[in-house]
Computed example of a mutant assay.
Amino acid sequence: MESLSLAEELVLLSYDDSGTATVASPELDYAVAGAVLCDLAVGGQIAIDADGRVLADDNPTGGNPADDSQADDDPAGGYAPGGAPGRGHGRELLDQVRTRIQAEPGRATRDWVVDLSHGVVDEVLDGLVASGVLRRERDRVLWVLPRTRFAPPDGVEPPAETETRRRLAAAERGAGPVGPRTAALACLLNALDVPDVGAARPSDARHRPPAVLGPAAWPIAATTDVVDGYRATVARSVFTATDVATGS
């Protein structure tokens, strides 16, 4: 059974069952870009050098099961041993990003998070639609404004999303060790404040993030920095506008 990539899991958890996003752009875009980097890092496809530059591995392992917990190795919800995550288009996205990194060595992780964020959510959604996990629905709000929703085909939570929530819940209960993919997903959900995921903070990831995240630690740090930086910029803009409006 093919497993979802972290980007696919994150997008599923960021949309409600009506097909509406619960996280606004560009924060979701940054987090999904970070999720792509996390999958590549955990799979041994990319690494970071001593100067903080991202490099593609010339001899990728295609995934190292020793880096993940048993829960993450479950093909229904994690990194399949010896294989790459992603369903069709999701796997192609990982391959495309790795090829780009290989062609542009020496760029900082933060730069890649920002660069890859452009259009990445749309790419992931297209892949989920193509694989039948979601359905694209187009309608109009008040018969005027066009709207596109991405809802489950039968109106209920997709089985793939249910499996992801199960994995997060097991981590929260402390039911076995927490692998780097599950810990990375939890950290991304925390950074976005995604509502109602059921288990946003696996205990191991909360108390010992560097050890649990493993190769995903540096993409998570960069992604969190980008999201926090964007929020700080928005907050400063709001304060400035308020000061101007009030004459203070």
Rank of each mutant, 00 (worst) to 15 (best):
1 M>S: 14
1 M>C: 07
3 S>F: 02
3 S>W: 02
4 L>P: 05
7 A>V: 05
15 Y>N: 10
16 D>V: 07
16 D>L: 08
18 S>K: 11
18 S>G: 12
21 A>Y: 09
23 V>H: 12
25 S>K: 14
26 P>Q: 12
26 P>K: 11
28 L>P: 10
28 L>D: 14
31 A>E: 07
32 V>E: 01
34 G>H: 06
36 V>Y: 01
37 L>M: 08
41 A>F: 02
45 Q>V: 00
45 Q>S: 05
46 I>P: 00
47 A>G: 00
48 I>T: 04
48 I>S: 00
52 G>P: 02
54 V>R: 03
59 N>I: 04
61 T>M: 02
61 T>K: 03
62 G>A: 02
70 Q>D: 11
72 D>A: 04
76 A>M: 07
78 G>D: 02
80 A>Y: 01
80 A>Q: 05
82 G>F: 08
83 G>R: 11
83 G>C: 05
83 G>L: 05
86 G>D: 10
88 G>L: 06
89 H>I: 04
90 G>Y: 03
91 R>F: 07
91 R>Q: 14
92 E>P: 00
98 R>F: 02
102 Q>D: 10
104 E>G: 00
106 G>I: 08
107 R>A: 03
109 T>W: 00
113 V>G: 08
113 V>F: 11
114 V>F: 06
118 H>G: 12
118 H>D: 15
125 L>D: 14
127 G>Q: 08
128 L>H: 13
130 A>Q: 13
130 A>S: 15
131 S>V: 10
131 S>T: 15
132 G>E: 09
133 V>I: 14
134 L>K: 06
137 E>M: 06
141 V>C: 05
144 V>T: 15
150 F>D: 09
151 A>N: 08
152 P>T: 05
152 P>K: 12
153 P>K: 06
153 P>M: 10
159 P>W: 07
160 A>V: 12
160 A>Y: 12
161 E>L: 15
162 T>V: 15
162 T>S: 15
163 E>R: 11
164 T>E: 09
165 R>I: 12
166 R>F: 10
172 E>L: 14
173 R>D: 14
174 G>E: 12
174 G>N: 07
175 A>M: 06
177 P>K: 12
179 G>L: 06
182 T>L: 10
182 T>N: 11
183 A>D: 07
184 A>L: 08
184 A>C: 07
184 A>R: 05
186 A>K: 01
190 N>Q: 13
191 A>Y: 03
192 L>C: 07
192 L>A: 07
193 D>M: 05
193 D>N: 11
198 G>Y: 08
198 G>R: 09
199 A>F: 12
202 P>I: 12
204 D>F: 05
208 R>T: 15
209 P>F: 09
211 A>G: 02
213 L>P: 12
216 A>P: 08
220 I>F: 05
222 A>D: 10
223 T>V: 07
225 D>A: 13
227 V>S: 02
228 D>T: 10
228 D>Q: 13
229 G>A: 11
234 V>T: 08
236 R>E: 14
238 V>A: 13
240 T>V: 05
241 A>C: 03
241 A>F: 04
244 V>P: 00
245 A>C: 03
247 G>C: 04
